[in-house]
Amino acid sequence: MQSECSKDPLSPLMLTMPVAMGYIPLGMVFGFLFVSAGGQWWAAIALSVLVFAGAAQYAAIPMMAAGMSMGAIALATAVINLRHVFYGLSLIDRFPRNGWYRWYMVFGLTDETYSVLTTLPKDTVPIKMLSVTALNHLWWIAGTALGALMGSQVKIPLVGLDFVLSCLFAVLMVEQWRNRLFSSPLWSAMLAYVAASLLSASHALDIAIGLCVLASFFVKHRQEHRVNV
């Protein structure tokens, strides 16, 4: 690291170390749960190579295990990853204009990659941003492969380990709540779920998501102000 330019001393590898510490264990949990739910180890790896979206991949496990339609899974993926629409807005001017790597970097724009890339100086060379994206992708795939191979060898006799997913969702909910502009999504979601499970217990999640999309269009956000915590 000493030999590199002093203005920008961290190598892509070092930049992605914190991400690796999250992606490898979380990828392992994904691979492990996917195989435990009855999936093939290589299918878990294929999903991590092709999709590269943590929360959506987690959500897909119970949906695929239940054999839900591709349309429902597509909708859930769209809804979970909707925030990614806004990530590119702050990186448009900094990404390379052309070439396959431009679109690979767009493909790899996860929460974590976005966080790392937006902290880099404005004049960062494209190859460095590309390396960060590729390394993050690699950590995610490596974690998935480890977990999937473990899952197909080891049978853990404890019940309740898959509750880690509920815990992940709870953590993400807390962070969304901390950064909320208004509180109505929480109450709307609770109401929507109650209403949806009365309508159809087996499609409660899909219906509730639909209701929340509708609610987001119609709920009047009075004075939108940032809540100070």
Partner: peptide, 24 residues
Amino acid sequence: VKRAGKFLPLAIMTLLVIHSVAGA
């Protein structure tokens, strides 16, 4: 799009928590 983008993340996470808790 703006409204949905602001409203949905918290709503969806809440739904995922409730749904996975109900399932467990």
